[in-house]
Amino acid sequence: MLVPIIVIGTLVLVYVGTYALNKKVPIPEECRDLTDAATCTACHNFTCSYKK
């Protein structure tokens, strides 16, 4: 019973850690617009690629 809790707990900690670290590193200035455009190519903001 202890092992699954340890495994999942470790993985959650790793994820939250990398997520927080990644948030701290800033996106390069010139790529700001590019990231917004890229979001349009996936389903998060799917409508914008077709409806403009």
């Binding site: 959650v12 994820y15 939250v16 997520y19 927080a20 948030k23």
Partner: peptide, 10 residues
């Protein structure tokens, strides 16, 4: 607020 998405995924 910063760890919203990870928590939702879990």
């Amino acid at each position: 607020h910063d760890v919203r998405t990870p928590s939702y995924i879990v």
